[in-house]
Design a protein around this nucleic acid. Sequence first.
DNA 1: AACCGCATTACAAACGGTTGCATGACGGTG
DNA 2: CACCGTCATGCAACCGTTTGTAATGCGGTT
Lengths: 340, 340
Amino acid sequence: MKNTQATIRDLALKLNISISTVSRALRGAQDVNPETKKAVLEMAQQMNYEPNKVAQSLRIKKTNTIGIVVPEIAIHFFSSVISGIQHYTSRHGYSIMICQSLESFEIEKSNIQMLVSNRVDGLLISVSSETREYQHLERLMEKKIPMVLFDRVVDSLDVSKVVVDDHDGAFKAVDYLIKTGCKRIAYIGGALTLSISNQRMKGYLDALKTNNIPVQEELMVFCNEFHDEPIVATRQLLDLPELPDAIFCMNDPVAILTLQVLKQRKIAVPDEISVVGFTNEPVSRYIEPSITTVAQPAYQMGEAAARMFIEQVENPASFKPRMETLQTELIIRNSTRRIA
Amino acid sequence: MKNTQATIRDLALKLNISISTVSRALRGAQDVNPETKKAVLEMAQQMNYEPNKVAQSLRIKKTNTIGIVVPEIAIHFFSSVISGIQHYTSRHGYSIMICQSLESFEIEKSNIQMLVSNRVDGLLISVSSETREYQHLERLMEKKIPMVLFDRVVDSLDVSKVVVDDHDGAFKAVDYLIKTGCKRIAYIGGALTLSISNQRMKGYLDALKTNNIPVQEELMVFCNEFHDEPIVATRQLLDLPELPDAIFCMNDPVAILTLQVLKQRKIAVPDEISVVGFTNEPVSRYIEPSITTVAQPAYQMGEAAARMFIEQVENPASFKPRMETLQTELIIRNSTRRIA
DNA sequence: AACCGCATTACAAACGGTTGCATGACGGTG
DNA sequence: CACCGTCATGCAACCGTTTGTAATGCGGTT
């Protein structure tokens, strides 16, 4: 943003024509003499002119920038989603501005405020695990700022969403565990305020029900964060009078911690206890034992969210919020027994 | 960017005072009556006013946005660097705009152009592996746009840089291998156009030299990408008349591929061949065997780059480009033998 | 010669802020 | 009473574009 940057006015001065003509020439308008146009383009090239998007944005009231809020960028799942978003939006001329909430509600709010202040054309958001009020999102809706929620969505809001079929993913995982002969299947989940936690738990419960296995309250534990609590949770399960024969973890990081505790206690996986994760983080493939997990199509989720967003901005009148559900895939590895 | 957003003019109208007074009140200027100020702030609150940063940026010629270009966001190392950058810059009021080059020179150029067009206050760049001309960066320097290169830097340019002591890291790794008794140590590296490849190779060579081990050309192979070529490279090494007793890989992904080939060929690690990686990706800790690797302080690198950048923008006159070198740490795991 | 239509170009007003300078009111001073 | 400094506020220009509308020139008609 230095004075070294040429402006449209500089070009006009040099060529001795008006600013508006230069502007029209640059954007290839119809009613400008081919020769003038040529001269302008050459001069632009020569003076190394770069259009000032800030001025453009102000004038046309559109920044061609989209704001993204994720809990943490360094989590593989989210950076993959972002990749997907970027792949799609960049081809439509959008830049992206990224913020991390670091799972803090306050930071999430200020992130959004900042993005709105920067007049992004819309927002793609995955809410923090701390978020349980939604006025900040409702305000966006009032202001008619296009928004798409992904992965960590808010059920009660009538906005566009892209999610994974968490219920089905969990169901498939637990159903598989049962087919391998497991009967006492435990569940380590997240706070039920998060829709995904809820869905995964329901999938777990439904799989039990479908297979006529009674639900045991003692086999269900919940964590608010996924660094320390899962360790406590696992120990709690292992201290039960009767051991579980499988543990379904709500995501891979939890599964990894669970495996560590099992290793410490010298419990054989999968012979004594099977473990299943969720997400298919790259690690889960390489860890010993490799983890059976429910793969989420992160990149595709990003693309889908981006697609919905673009539809929405290009067609604000006719667009109706909708929810898109992506399917998961159960990836069978070595932390579970084989089907007999 | 809808008409639903209140402007400073709307506030002025409502309060029946001038635009400039509102502006001054909002930014807490000195010479505005406390009461007026209070009224303005209240009205702003009430009307849900959000300053338009686009207009601000245009006027003050500063966007408080910084552009980042990385090869790929979904690589843990880079997303960690970005985390570090964001942590530091957000506290200084900067937003970040992120682009991925996907290791393509052309995309890298267009990324940079786009960011310049958006008038970011500066750029933090890690160049693509394809990049071997630097006019696009030189142009930035001519335009006096602050820039900091990190990790994948360009030696020949006189700009600020943050790197890891690749030479030392490689040296420590190879030296350790030698201390564990290895004598025929192979190296799988990247294209020497990348400064980091170069430095790591030199570290390898110097470690051999220091320990009076002759360099064998046949033990050094180079890859242009890290998905398929490392597999070929490893096989090539294993087909030598005399097997190596260690392989030093230029990064963890290569090490993982190497381990796979070794597993296929049923060669015991580390008993027959030791393997060392570089970067300390999270996977390398969990894979079997866990990989001895040279840890790079990614997050700190981001912070350092951000710090240098801020210094530069806040103090453009006195700032001199400099290079900051961060130290690595050798993390010993199970892919190498113990020191006797 | 006056007029018209057409292609091309210039003018000027926005967009939403910031900021130097002028203005006005007011109390104090000589 | 004229003058002055201070405080608070308003005016207007500006940032770099876009765009509706007016102006210009010109060849062709009547």
